[in-house]
C-alpha cells in the first residue's frame, strides 16, 4: 500500500546543527503512528517538515493528500468564541466540513458562544482537534496532543481520534512522551534519537520480533555473540537482555515478549541500535 507519509534521506539543519539527519521512513494509510524520542530528538522538526512549515535541507518528504496539524500550544485565540474559531477556520480553508465540526462540538457539549479562553484544557484540545478534522485531512499530525490534560480528557481525546480513524481512512502521526498513552491506540512506532530514525514499523511485528531474556549473567556474553542485542542490563548474577529474533536458548534462560514501553526504552538507551525495514511498504494486514 502506498504510504501517506514518506521521507527519504530527510535532513533538516538549523545553522550548523542537524536537527534531523538521513531519516527514511514511511507510514501506511490508515495507521496511527506514535512518534517517540527524548527532547531534542527531532520529533517536532519531523512534524513541521511533514506539514510544510519547514523545508528539508536534504532529502525529501512526501505527503499524499491533505495534511492537518495541531501544534503543542493549541492554535486557538483565547478571545474568540468557539463559533468565531469555526468561522475563522472556514475562511482559511478551501476544504471545510462545517456540519461535521458543529456536530462534533454539539456531541461533546461544547457551547459555541463560549470564549476559547474560558474552556477547560480538555475542551480546548477537542476544539483544536475539531478544527483540524474539519479540513478532512488524509494525514493528521498531532504534536503532544495529550500534554497537560487530565486522565479523563486524555481518554476522551484518544477516543475522538480513534473514532475518526475508524470512520474515515485517516492516517495519524502523534508524538508523546508517555508511552502508556500509546499502547492500544497506536499501531505503528517511530523512534527518533539524536535526529536519526532508530525504529519504524508495525508495533505488533516489532513486539513479535523481539524477546526479553533473563538468565545467569555469566552466560550473557555467549548469548550476545549469537543474537542481536538491543539493550542489556543486570544486577549481579542476573542479566536481562532485549534481543531481536528468537534465539535457541540454554534452559537456564527465561524469555518473553516485551511490552511497548520496554521496547521503546531499550532503543532509547542504545542509540547505536536500529530496527528499520527496507523501504516500508506494508499496510494493514500485510
Amino acid at each position: 500500500m502506498t504510504p501517506v507519509l514518506e521521507t527519504t534521506g530527510l535532513g533538516v539543519r538549523y545553522g550548523r546543527t542537524w536537527a534531523l539527519r538521513d531519516c527514511s521512513l514511511a507510514v501506511p494509510r490508515g495507521r496511527v503512528a506514535a512518534l517517540v524520542g527524548p527532547n531534542g530528538a527531532g520529533k517536532t522538526t519531523l512534524m513541521h517538515t511533514a506539514v510544510g512549515l519547514l523545508k528539508p535541507s536534504a532529502g525529501q518528504v512526501t505527503v499524499r493528500g491533505e495534511v492537518a496539524f495541531v501544534a503543542q500550544d493549541k492554535p486557538l485565540y483565547d478571545g474568540f468564541t468557539v463559533a468565531e474559531m469555526l468561522t475563522f477556520g472556514r475562511r482559511m480553508n478551501p476544504r471545510w466540513d462545517e456540519e461535521a465540526a458543529r456536530d462534533r462540538l454539539g456531541r461533546l457539549g461544547i457551547p459555541l458562544e463560549r470564549r476559547v479562553g474560558r474552556l477547560s484544557g480538555g475542551q480546548q484540545a477537542q476544539v483544536a482537534l475539531t478544527l483540524a478534522l474539519a479540513r478532512r485531512p488524509a494525514l493528521l499530525v498531532l504534536d503532544e496532543p495529550l500534554a497537560n490534560l487530565d486522565p479523563l480528557a486524555r481518554h476522551d481525546v484518544m477516543r475522538a481520534v480513534m473514532a475518526e480513524v475508524a470512520a474515515h481512512e485517516l492516517t495519524v502521526l502523534l508524538s508523546s512522551h508517555v508511552v502508556s498513552d500509546l499502547t492500544d491506540t497506536c499501531d505503528w512506532l517511530i523512534v527518533l534519537n539524536g535526529g536519526r530514525a532508530q525504529v519504524s514499523g508495525d508495533i505488533e511485528d516489532l513486539l513479535d520480533g523481539h524477546r526479553v531474556l533473563t538468565g545467569p549473567a555469566g552466560l550473557a556474553e555467549g548469548v550476545a555473540a549469537r543474537t542481536r542485542v538491543v539493550a542489556a542490563s543486570g544486577s549481579g548474577r542476573q542479566a536481562t537482555l532485549l534481543v531481536r529474533d528468537r534465539p535457541v536458548l540454554d534452559p537456564r534462560w527465561s524469555d518473553r515478549r516485551p511490552g511497548l514501553d520496554e521496547l521503546v526504552l531499550a532503543y532509547l538507551r542504545s542509540p547505536g541500535s536500529a530496527a528499520l525495514p527496507g523501504p516500508a511498504r506494508q499496510g494493514v494486514g500485510a
Partner: peptide
C-alpha cells in the same frame, strides 16, 4: 461496529 468499540474504549480500530 469497530467505530462503536473504539469510541468507548479509545483503542485502535485495527485491534
Amino acid at each position: 461496529t469497530a467505530r462503536e468499540v473504539v469510541e468507548s474504549l479509545a483503542i485502535n480500530p485495527n485491534t
